[in-house]
Amino acid sequence: MDGFLVQIINGLQYGLLLFLISSGLTLIFGVMGVINLAHGSLFMIGAYLAYVVAGITGDFWLAPPAAIVGGLGFGAVLERVLFQRFRNREHLDQVLLTFALILLFEEARASLVGNEFHAVAVPALLDFSVPVVGGFAYSAYRIAVLGICLLVAAGMVLFLGRTRVGASIRAAAENPEMVDLLGIDARLIHTLVFAAGTALAMLAGALAAPLQSVYPGMGDSILIASFIVVVIGGLGSVGGAFWAALLVGLIDTLGQVYFPQIAGIAVCGLMALVLSWRPTGLFSRA
C-alpha cells in the first residue's frame, strides 16, 4: 500500500512535468494554429543545457533559470525566423517542416555534445530522501520538482486568467484579426506564446535531467506523451492539458509498475477512446 502511494506521487510528478511541456504545445496550437513536432526537441535541448551548465559551473541551480532565459530568447528567434511563416500553412507542411527541425536539432546536438548518455547529479542541497509513510522514503529533489511544476502551473493559470496580456492571448486564440483591430499586435502575442512555450519545455528538460539520463532522442517519447495529453485535454486548452497530464502521468507510471505488459499501449488506448467518444477532449467545456 505504501509502495502504491509512492507510485502515485511518482505519477503526479511525471504528470506535472508533462504539463510543463504540453501546456506550451497546446497553447502554440491554440493561438498560432501550429503543430510543432520539434517541441520534444526543446525538452531535450533544455536537458542538455542543464548538463552543460551544471558541468561547467558545478552548480545545477543555474540550469533552470538558464533554460527559462535561454528558452525565451531561442523561442522568440525561432518564431520570428521560422514559425511565423508556418502559421498559415497546411498542417502537413507544418509536420514536415517541424520534423525537419527535429533532425536539425539532433544533428546539432550530436556535433556539439556528442551521442553519449550522461548523468546529471541531483543537486547536493536536495540529495536526500524524505520519509513518506511506513519506511518508504521519497527523493527530496523529486518533491522539489513537483513543487516547482505546481508553482509554474498556478502562475500560468493566474497569468492567463487574470492579466490583460493573458486575456489578449485567449482573445488571439479565438480571433487574431479582431485583436489587431483593437490596436494590439497579434504578431507580438504569437512571439510571446511561442517563446513562453519554448522556455517551459526547456525548463522541463532541465528539471528532468537529474531524474533520468540525458541522451539522444530523449525528446521523442516525451513528444508523443505530450501530444496524447494535448488531445485528451482538448486542443488549445491549458486547463484541459493540466488534468490530462496528471491522468497520463498516473496511468503511465502505475501501468509500468503494475501492468508492465500493457503499459505501453494504455495511454494510447485512452487517447483512442477519448478521440472516438469525446473528440474535443475529455476536459473541454461545452
Binding site: 485567449r170 482573445a171 479565438e174 479582431m178 489587431d180 483591430l181 483593437l182 499586435d185
Partner: peptide, 21 residues
C-alpha cells in the same frame, strides 16, 4: 494594429466578440 492605435476603430460585420472572454 497601428492604424487602430492611431484612432481608427472598426466594429466588423460579425461583431468579433471574444466568446470565451
Amino acid at each position: 494594429f497601428e492604424r487602430a492605435r492611431r484612432g481608427i476603430a472598426v466594429v466588423p460585420e460579425n461583431r468579433g466578440i471574444f466568446a470565451s472572454l
